[in-house]
Amino acid sequence: MRTRGDYALFASLLILTIAVVGCAKRPATTQAAAPAPTGTAVTTPATPAQPPTSQPSRPGDRGPTAAPSRPSTPAPPAPPATAAPATPGAGTRPSPKEFVSVPELKDIFFDFDKYDIRPEDAKTLDVNASWLKANPNQLVLIEGHCDERGTNEYNLALGERRAKAAMNYLVSQGVQASRITIISYGEERPVCTDKNEGCWSKNRRSHFLVKPR
């Protein structure tokens, strides 16, 4: 039994605030001991699955920037997902350091927060595709980049889509998908570090590098 004196400080603190909140228990944590395997994990499909959609962009396409809304209610289960055939598996990824820029392959650029190919950039990609077809012994690495605005994690995904959009275009123009590797740098490797649109627009790019087979 507590005395009135015991409550004196108690009461003084109660009046400090009127905000009362439930004191949620922290969930128990369990430390996983086993090391995680890499690269070779088993993939199991989520139950309400929708078939993956992946279409190469074509000249003039506005791309999947505004993807149509899909129902979030359960759809028929899809077969187990398989690895995307377009890029080599983790074990066979060539080191990005082995690739070099060549003047014949020009960068393409993107609108803010977009990854569709603009008509003028499609022309650049046509020239890039012609050069790659004329140099079939060259493998190509496509880097996807973002400007510094936005947030790291989202920009990593956005850069991936920009590299992928360029890749899909090149494939649609007859460049073998097996020659192409993509990498997203998100906002981590800007070519220009000023803080204005002239600079940011230079950073929103796909960059092309090659190495001999």
Partner: peptide
């Protein structure tokens, strides 16, 4: 973590992340 089993949660043509 312990088994390395991957389970896919999203299937969409757009970006799903974070």
């Amino acid at each position: 973590i312990a088994t390395g089993v991957l389970r896919r949660l999203t299937r969409h043509a757009g970006i799903d992340t974070e």
